[in-house]
Design a binder for these strands. Structure first.
Lengths: 202, 202
DNA sequence: TGACAATGAAAACGGTCGTTAGCTATAATA
DNA sequence: TATTATAGCTAACGACCGTTTTCATTGTCA
């Protein structure tokens, strides 16, 4: 943290503070202090507070699209429903505990109405990306006869919605983590029971 | 609006403004102006800005628990799955378009991390109340052999999650209302197809 | 060495924040 | 009618807001 370039340090300070108190709840002096300099010096690196915010969103958007989001797990296609659930569970645990992802979600929740861009980002991350990812996987599983034939996008929505809702709940009430993980587990179990075909069934 | 008592008018002005720009984005002078008086005069009715906010939350919480929330539709038990869906669809359309409910949801989204109370309220409204309501209905429908026997709470979560998620999406992007209502419709159709037993099946 | 760009800090800007004090008009109460 | 509580106003408070100006320090390159 100490050895990062200043411009980047500012963004991480902003991420932390905006996630705690929201955009309007944080002054530039406080951001500066958390980045190890004085308020006015911020303007050597950014044009203003709004610019800091936008750059921060650029950063987390890049992180999201590139990193943990899709590419890693999308290539290794699951060989069974159990493996699919295992993978999903792993991604959920990561998503819940990773510091940057968590702070990003909090900012997205608080600032989703600030601009059209924020609204679209929130929808993309909380709904569309997840749904698309699993729709693709489900389509493949259906072809291989491992999943009941149905509209893959619809099934993906059924699969993803309870998870998304419960993760929002975890963000608000992290003390209920155990209960929430249990509910997600039950949901997955149920999903397999209802939609999976036994692999030896031909 | 003009003929309301001042104390109430202030709350509705606050509801409107907080829903647009969030708690920290609105000054007391602006609230006062929208209620038809000057900033300092607010203090004849409330102890301060925080007090206005808390009173507003008290009001909408009361509205919610009492009014549209449960009592009306819970007593008239649905006689078929189709009727259940019809009722649910009607409630969704109301929830989406009612001004007060919509503004309440926006405030809940933006201020969910402001206090423990706000966090609990958000979870209650977006998850627990809906889930409980439908868990009760589903339990009844299962007893009458109209719904596949399963854990009613789990089934309620499956039923409610996509709706809740899509309504959040509507709040952010109301221009996508048509698409969203269509998805909710498809979800209900799917739910009936998967879980309902034909009534003449005995 | 001298010129120069980069990066910091201090001082100060006008504006807005939530809040308090003090005054005035009206309405209810004795 | 005299008194008192109510509810509005203006003025003003100190604190903080985002931002600009000005100056000092540094390291780079000619």
């Amino acid at each position: 943290m100490k050895d990062m370039p200043t411009k980047e340090r500012i963004l991480y300070a902003a991420l932390d503070l905006f996630a705690k108190k929201g955009y309007d709840g944080v002054g530039v002096d406080l951001i500066a202090e958390n980045a190890g300099l004085k308020g006015p010096s911020l303007y050597r690196h950014y044009k203003g507070k709004e610019d800091i915010f936008n750059s921060l969103i650029d950063l987390v958007a890049f992180h999201y699209e590139e990193g943990f989001g899709l590419k890693k797990k999308l290539e290794e296609f699951p060989d069974s429903m159990d493996e699919l659930i295992e993978n999903a569970m792993e991604r959920i645990r990561f998503t819940m505990h990773d510091d940057i992802v968590r702070k990003t979600r909090r900012i997205l929740a608080m600032e989703q109405f600030r601009s059209k861009r924020m609204a679209e980002l929130a929808t993309r991350y909380h709904v569309e990306n997840l749904q698309q990812t699993y729709a693709g996987i489900f389509a493949g599983l259906m072809e291989r006869g491992m999943l009941r034939k149905d509209d893959p996008e619809l099934l993906a929505l059924e699969f993803v919605s309870p998870v998304s809702l419960l993760i929002h709940m975890y963000d608000r009430q992290p003390e209920r983590e155990e209960e929430i993980l249990d509910k997600i587990g039950k949901h997955f179990e149920h999903f397999v029971k209802v939609y999976a075909k036994s692999h030896s069934g031909f």
